[in-house]
Design a protein around this nucleic acid. Sequence first.
DNA 1: AAGGGGAATCGAATCGATTCGACTCCGCGC
DNA 2: GCGCGGAGTCGAATCGATTCGATTCCCCTT
Lengths: 335, 335
Amino acid sequence: MVTIADVARHAGVAPSTVSYVLTGRRSISPATRARVEASVRALGYHPHAGARSLASNRAGVLALVLPMREGMHVPVLMQFVVAVANAARGHEHDVLLVTADQGAAGLRRVAGSAQVDGLLVMDVEMHDERVPVLRELDRPSVLIGYPADAAGLTCVDLDFAEAGARCVDHLADLGHRYVALVGAPRAVYQRDTGFAHRTMAGFSAAAMRRGISSTTLPTGTDHGSVRSAVAGLLERHPAVTGLVVHNEAALPSVLEALRATGRKVPDDVAVVAICPDEQAERLAPRLTSVRVPAEQLGHRAVELLMAKLARVAVPPLTLLPPRLVERSSTARRCD
Amino acid sequence: MVTIADVARHAGVAPSTVSYVLTGRRSISPATRARVEASVRALGYHPHAGARSLASNRAGVLALVLPMREGMHVPVLMQFVVAVANAARGHEHDVLLVTADQGAAGLRRVAGSAQVDGLLVMDVEMHDERVPVLRELDRPSVLIGYPADAAGLTCVDLDFAEAGARCVDHLADLGHRYVALVGAPRAVYQRDTGFAHRTMAGFSAAAMRRGISSTTLPTGTDHGSVRSAVAGLLERHPAVTGLVVHNEAALPSVLEALRATGRKVPDDVAVVAICPDEQAERLAPRLTSVRVPAEQLGHRAVELLMAKLARVAVPPLTLLPPRLVERSSTARRCD
DNA sequence: AAGGGGAATCGAATCGATTCGACTCCGCGC
DNA sequence: GCGCGGAGTCGAATCGATTCGATTCCCCTT
């Protein structure tokens, strides 16, 4: 292995000088800088990560705590992971994967062993056992999603309440008087997940505000159950003309189910989805949707974490504003 | 931070003794062991990862190089990632994410800085720029998928050629005389990806062997293009009665397209998919399929890497045998 | 000409674990 | 009774960077 001493010898300087060239923490004459950089390249020097972390008390690694539970839409999750990895690389950091099934102990382990400088935690529940642990850790963290008690934490999320409301407003503006929310699987609500609750709350509140009728139903992800759920909904509430779908995995089946009952989109029933743009583009018809900005969320989460690492103050809660994009699954309603 | 010296003092022993208790590399009297373990718990001691890696020359971390390119099916990929993370934890290792867009330089960086003990590389192409780099690195690696020249490497993969053949055999056994392969997006073939080629080769060879007609077509992933591709296929080759689909993302659209042309599955056209079991179970009708054993592959890859780290010899190529599960999308054909 | 000050560099201490050699007991065999 | 060997423990060297004074040198001011 090539060490900093080897580079120093090769360049004819002290090891500390090499270090200062590399970290830029002290001024270095252009001549020396050039000589050292040449030696680094000539020898193919990479600083030893362990030694660096020991001496500098910085690991150059962020922990990303993955959720692995029922009802999460995997492609969205993956977009997020990749966005985080890229953003982290932009700040000279790598990403260590921690699976959620390691629970709070996993957080303690990676933080306690100084393996990571900070933590990103996804899919936080309203009452999450990991939240108190994060508070007591000596390392900064950023949550994606936010728990009931977010005091002392830094959270990022899409403003799901506003997203639900936007969908209703859009439908109401188009003349719909009765709308339904086709939501996440029941399990997601049962385990008290913030984003599902908030969407529902925003949806219902907006319907009240606009004075239109609304109903909601949780939905599974397999074709059969989605189909029968949608059919049941339309049977019980035949006046429903607008659907808000917050369940990425069920989207194709929802459209199929509408087709099967002979309803045309958007003429008989309008559909607004909360899902990533690519998915909205890929289905037929192309869906009016509020995008889930996984990429942005990941990016922002890393920015916030880096700021905390640099001891810069950050807002406790960052809610990204939802953006609704109109496509072919909604149209003005002429009653 | 609690150090090993703190633990040693608390337990009334030398730091080295604490280390031996923790690593088990020398014999320790039961009494001392108990005392040290109690102190470790009492103080909440976690060894400093950097210090450990510096002293022992082992990082306790594996690199996982993620593909991030067109045509990969994300849920399968994610299954794989999680399987790797869990398997690694089972061997006291963590997983560091390296995105493929960092290319060979990324590998050099994480290996050169001793950040990881070994590397897992996914989605290897036939002529992959990373392969020569892996050969020259001083750290062991395992590839998922295998390149044209696999000399000196360790590779794991599903036996895709055999998988393609199994599908054909199954259809031939049921009496089909004309089968088609609905494959990956054209881009996947163009960039010379092993698994797509091998499936196709196995498919075609088996058709020859069984003396039945066959045709193949690459397919996109968006609804419209899949639909027209399938419609076109059936128009040009009306005698086709069996479809082998090796394109997870296109599956729902393929079924839809068949329905749209008025063909019944399995009565008019039989369908065999190469996809994860859950997906086969989730669609309507439930699909006869050869499973893509992402979980097993990840697990096996980690096992192989750990063996190499322990300097145990391992086979250069591990091909997992495909398993075909019969479901409702194929049935005996009575001509 | 003396002295102040900043830029550039060096040397040595430091981070926290692992590991090797050495030392102390103790029991056993002869 | 002496020596031998193994079990158990300790002490010190070591891993490879960072970082904090300290030092040198030069320029500029007064």
